[in-house]
Design a protein around this nucleic acid. Structure first.
Lengths: 154, 154
DNA sequence: ACACGATAGACAACCTGGTTCACTATTTAG
DNA sequence: CTAAATAGTGAACCAGGTTGTCTATCGTGT
């Protein structure tokens, strides 16, 4: 039909939706004392999680090389969001853990995401939003963490 | 409630949805004779459009510096998707136009996007998909082209 | 017991795509 | 006719990605 949206609107809207949320998150995060956190860092810290991880493991989780993961960890370390310590059980390994500051950023992010989702729910209605989430779940891969975010665009 | 999805699932699903479509597009595009086109290039060509543009204007549209826009145009030119010609009315300007090959990539992209959308419609139902699109439209900015795609992630 | 393969991390060289600064050429406005 | 604005380009730099190479350590099989 002639008044269908052009085919490229759907992917663009998905991206804009993503960007809208991420931009709002980081604007609020900056206001709450974390102005240096970049979107990338949020994903990486989320992937590091409470239990810590290693560069190799992190690379696997994110779908990038261990060297790339290592570089990102270095940046995060410089910013004070993570710290590295040798694993006493395997002195080759270095465990990457969130610092209190990293943890703070992560818990604030979680809260802000909930608020942003609530904002959408207020606009769309909780039911429509749940439907949207369910539909997206149905057409996207299960493993939410293999985003391959970094560099997939090049 | 305790079994709500974590707040970060929504943005991630949006991104995964986007990536799923874009990856499928480029896999198919590669199969149809455009293996060198990167996601970025599709956006840029879309933004160049049928009427052509200039580096400065393109930069404004995409939300990047004119130099960055110029570099991308250079790449696209090297790949044979666009060509540049001096504007006879203002010899400072260089008009960037799609070549036949660029146009071919763009029209194929449009058709492939329609097919991908049809695939989603088959999974979700046309009505649910329309609802999803309508909801996304309601929570995202109107101007679909100020994506600021490039580099917003860093 | 030990040699050897697998693994973790680090370093270097390189690519892409972004940034800012500086500069030239041209157009436009006063 | 001069001065400001604009288009394009080049250089230096940055982030984050890649591959290849190297070292240290671990774990296994003979």
């Amino acid at each position: 039909m002639s008044n269908d949206p052009p085919g490229f609107e759907l992917p663009l809207r998905l991206f804009l939706g993503f960007r809208t949320l991420i931009d709002a998150l980081h604007a609020e995060l900056a206001r709450q004392g974390h102005p240096e956190v970049r979107p990338m860092h949020g994903f990486v810290m989320q992937a590091i999680g409470m239990r810590g991880t290693t560069a190799v493991e992190l690379g696997r989780t994110l779908g990038v090389s261990k060297q790339a993961a290592g570089k990102t960890v270095e940046t995060l370390e410089r910013l004070g969001y993570v710290e590295r310590a040798r694993d006493p059980h395997d002195t080759r390994r270095k465990i990457v853990r969130l610092t209190p500051r990293g943890l703070d950023a992560l818990t604030r992010s979680a809260r802000i995401f909930e608020e942003l989702r609530a904002g959408w729910a207020a606009k769309l209605g909780e039911e429509r939003l749940r439907a949207l989430e369910a539909d997206l779940r149905a057409v996207t891969p299960q493993d939410v963490f293999r985003l391959d975010v970094p560099g997939w665009f090049g």
